[in-house]
Design a protein around this nucleic acid. Structure first.
Lengths: 163, 163
DNA sequence: CGAAAAGTTCAGTATTATCTGAACACAATG
DNA sequence: CATTGTGTTCAGATAATACTGAACTTTTCG
């Protein structure tokens, strides 16, 4: 097993989430490790050891990941400590969040209201932006149904043992 | 015209882009102003005045916005200075970037390669993630065609004077 | 070609955010 | 209920980043 390659992946996922999602580096690193570790459930102490980080920053990182649903907290019988497990299926939910369209539209609405009494042409830029978001907001639910069909079909004929 | 409401919008777009895209606050503010100003083309000096910012930070903000295509640089006949104009249509291009799926898949590939010799089950988490991104990557081009059709239809029967 | 205006770069400063480590709170076991 | 182990919070240290303002480069026009 290529330990160095795994560390590379963990670090790159940290960088990716920092860049794309604006999270602290440690958040992406923790998630990265939880996506490749064995067993899939790891304690905070293990995370701190592997990632060479303090208890505090692990606590922060897991709190963030729990909040957005990318990991879950579990406890095994007979163990006195929590473990964390990645939830790969949470990625879907993330893509389908309607909030990603609603939040920008809320801001655009501020601008449109501010220009309510102005000539229509002046609002054209904001209207165009809003219509783009509106299209996505309307289209996503149906697209999601299509996705679920495709996924279920792939699972049906493909690998066994899926959830 | 509600000057205060406009400032509110400008600031909120600054916050939104800072949060969602991780840009400096000033980038979003500049873009916000360029989406509501009259005329739509504004000089760096005007931006600095409205946003109460230095020439330097305006230069940085416009450079970033030019690079990602959200604004363009124009010059009017007889004027010795550049103006900047928002490109609302750039939002589309942003949504359709294939890179948004390719970059994460590149990172996932690092992990999958690192686990190449491990039992298949251990790669299941990464495989699931990759399949999600793969679906989007495959589906986006056709979805875009559909979007273009919808948009053109709306423009055809809707408002005149569109590009 | 020279002067004036515009645009960019960059060193320094202020601000913000992350990480550590220790104190504190909580839970489990005997 | 005391003890031990686990989890969280937070003040301070450290690092990263944005903004300013001035120096510098480039462009424009007589």
């Amino acid at each position: 097993m290529d330990q160095l390659a795994i560390e590379r992946f963990v670090e790159e996922l940290g960088v990716l989430l920092e860049l794309e999602a604006g999270t602290p580096r440690m958040v992406g690193r923790a998630l990265g490790w939880l996506l490749v570790c064995d067993p899939p459930e790891q304690s905070a102490a293990e995370l701190a050891e592997v990632l060479q980080a303090s208890k505090g920053s692990i606590s922060t990182a897991t709190r963030v990941l729990l909040r957005i649903g990318f990991i879950e907290r579990v406890r095994f019988r007979g163990e006195r400590f929590d473990r964390f497990r990645a939830r790969p299926e949470a990625w879907d939910e993330f893509f389908w969040r309607q909030e990603q369209f609603i939040a920008p539209r809320r801001v655009l609405r501020l601008g449109l209201d501010a220009l309510a009494d102005e000539p229509r042409a002046r609002r054209a830029r904001l209207e165009e932006l809003d219509s783009i978001y509106a299209w996505w907001e309307e289209r996503m639910p149906r697209l999601r149904e299509e996705y679920v069909r495709d996924r279920d079909r792939a699972r049906g004929q493909g690998q066994a043992g899926e959830q």
